[in-house]
Design a binder for these strands. Structure first.
Lengths: 203, 203
DNA sequence: TGTATTCAATACAGAACTGTATCCTACTCT
DNA sequence: AGAGTAGGATACAGTTCTGTATTGAATACA
């Protein structure tokens, strides 16, 4: 069974891709279905042939983005864990490399977070994804700290939560004032202090 | 010249108040002018008699909220600076007391931040407001650290940026998972470590 | 080669939204 | 009391949006 020349999955993918761009530009509620279709080079007919509604698109988009993100992380993990370098470089590197376009990713994920804060179903999906994300980071932290013989005085997941919170808050400032707050500056000046405070050599 | 029974400024205020609620519930683009008017107990006629457009309302709302916020801060500053207590308690207390309804304030300010990231004019206004906000916090930090005889190894404003970034990132997590991340927990476990690392007794 | 099916384009209906123009009411001031 | 005016309600026009129904083209299959 050969795939038809115009494959269904390909147009779905292009629609999702277009939605990502348009949502980043105009926000979730501000983007019309037609905007998304124009961006993808289709008409609304194609859209409603692939998605039941705009809401369904949002969840599908989130799931697709999430899946890709988690795949990337799993691919990067062994490399980062084995390579020499500090724990912080590995963790912050992972946060950055999984989101090559910082600005777009920040807009999209913040938008979706707001959506989740108003929509229980979206909240469940988001929390699930974030839990897996934290789990990956926590594993990375655990491995590196184990090989370098360091024990934490706080649960590693708590530390991961801190890193994520600071990273997201700092990214907001960096995007608003790129000149005053270079990307990563807050993390790189303060996280080493925390790491030093919570870590102590094992034995 | 007595003010008319239906004062212009009062309806403006009620419209702004309604806009705050509705924007928090449905987002900026998701809220219609009619929604806002219904909430405030007026019709669109009153709205367009007070604002030129929905966009103008957003800026006005931001300015009004900002003004009130800065007033509150200025009122709280002397009290916090003089009262006994740790520097962190004062700073975090200020952050919390200026936003009694954490959830609504987070939704609104995040929404406006996204708006600013797509709209240079809004970005200017937002950055200006945030700069004044940081200035207040920085002054508070400077006063308390001076009276307690502590010097910082980093610029105090940098430290304030850290506190804000962490606070905002942590608030997002707390709202998404209230049970797992109690409000303020990340700040209270990690900020003391940073404070300890950056401060040293003067002389 | 002819038929059936799948997918996207087009045309359309109904709703909602913004913004305007007009009307009405209530207050002010003389 | 009566004229003038300010502020808000109502009605309306024009646009835009979502979602559906129909049509057309291309592919699979017999």
């Amino acid at each position: 069974m050969q795939p038809p020349k115009r494959s269904r999955t390909a147009t779905r993918a292009r629609l999702l891709e277009g939605a990502l761009d348009v949502f980043a530009e105009r926000g979730f509620a501000g983007a019309s279905v037609e905007d998304i279709c124009d961006r993808a080079g289709f008409t609304r007919g194609a859209f409603y042939s692939n998605f039941a509604s705009k809401d369904e698109l949002v969840l599908a988009l989130f799931q697709a983005t999430t899946d890709r993100l988690l795949e990337q992380i799993e691919a990067l993990l062994p490399e980062l864990a084995s390579q020499p370098g500090t724990l912080l470089d590995a963790v912050l590197g992972l946060l950055d490399e999984t989101a090559p376009d910082q600005r777009q990713w920040h807009l999209i994920s913040t938008e979706f977070t707001l959506h989740a804060l108003r929509n229980p179903e979206a909240a469940r999906a988001l929390n699930e994804q974030r839990a897996m994300f934290r789990a990956s980071l926590t594993r990375l932290v655990a491995e590196i700290s184990a090989t370098s013989g360091v024990r934490f005085s706080v649960p590693p997941e708590q530390f991961v939560r801190l890193v994520i919170a600071l990273h997201e808050g700092a990214r907001s400032q960096s995007l608003l004032e790129p000149a005053e707050v270079p990307a990563g500056s807050l993390e790189h000046t303060f996280l080493p202090m925390v790491l030093d405070a919570v870590s102590r050599p094992s034995h």
